[in-house]
Amino acid sequence: MKISAAQRTENENRVRATMDRLLRGELPPGGRCDIKTLAREAGVDRTAFYGSRPYAHLREEFERRLQILQQAGEIPDPRAAQIVRLKTEVAALKTRLAAAEETTEALSDFRAQALARLAAQHEEILRLRETAAGDSRVTRLPAVRNQVIGTCS
């Protein structure tokens, strides 16, 4: 079915008005900032935006304007903005998790080294005690008892 030039102009004006609304972030409930929503809200068949169809130039204009907004850091679709924000958060959390895992690994290594050193020192103390016990020139001091000295009443 052919449409008249006046109907085509009217449709293009409706598409451009809808395009402006969508790019301002005025999305219908359940809609997105995409061609499907643009066609539905403008009351035009979506297939008319593809190939050599009558409104292909409007699709290109819409996509170009949307890309310019996105490059400027503006995302008219709140869900798309939320997705971008969540992806950024996930990347930051992954970085924090990697740093925490690295710290945990370093602390585990340090703990293992400290335990190995303590064990080696303990073995050295035991060896020195055995050597000292066998040497008659070494005099052992009496063990010190924990006493409370000088209690005042």
Rank of each mutant, 00 (worst) to 15 (best):
K2C: 06
K2R: 09
K2M: 11
K2A: 11
K2E: 09
I3R: 13
A6T: 07
A6L: 10
E10Y: 06
E10W: 02
E10A: 14
N11Q: 10
V15I: 14
A17I: 04
T18C: 13
D20F: 00
R21K: 15
L22N: 08
R24G: 10
R24M: 12
R24A: 14
R24C: 15
L27M: 12
L27N: 09
P28A: 15
P29C: 06
G30L: 06
G31E: 04
D34Q: 05
I35E: 00
K36R: 10
K36A: 01
L38C: 10
E41I: 02
G43L: 15
G43M: 15
R46M: 12
T47G: 12
Y50F: 08
S52E: 15
S52M: 14
R53D: 13
P54T: 04
Y55A: 08
Y55L: 11
A56W: 05
A56T: 13
L58F: 01
E60N: 14
E60A: 13
E61Q: 03
E63H: 03
E63M: 12
R65L: 03
L66D: 00
Q67A: 12
I68L: 15
L69P: 01
G73P: 03
E74D: 13
P76G: 01
P76S: 04
D77F: 12
P78Q: 06
A80E: 15
A80Q: 14
Q82H: 01
Q82S: 06
Q82C: 01
Q82L: 05
I83P: 00
K87L: 04
T88F: 00
T88K: 15
E89V: 06
V90W: 00
A91W: 01
A92F: 02
A92W: 01
T95S: 14
T95R: 14
L97N: 09
A99N: 09
E102D: 00
T103L: 12
T104D: 06
A106Q: 14
A106W: 05
A106F: 09
L107N: 07
S108F: 06
A112I: 11
Q113V: 09
A114Y: 11
A114W: 11
L115Y: 08
L115G: 10
R117D: 06
R117W: 03
L118N: 09
Q121I: 10
H122E: 11
H122N: 13
E123V: 09
I125E: 02
I125H: 02
L126H: 03
L126A: 07
L128K: 08
L128G: 05
R129V: 03
E130A: 06
T131H: 05
A132F: 00
A132Q: 00
A132C: 01
A133E: 09
D135M: 02
S136Q: 14
R137T: 12
R137I: 13
R137G: 14
V138W: 01
R140D: 04
L141S: 15
P142G: 13
P142D: 15
A143E: 15
V144G: 05
Q147V: 14
I149Y: 09
I149M: 11
I149P: 04
G150D: 07
T151A: 08
C152Y: 10
C152R: 09
S153W: 06
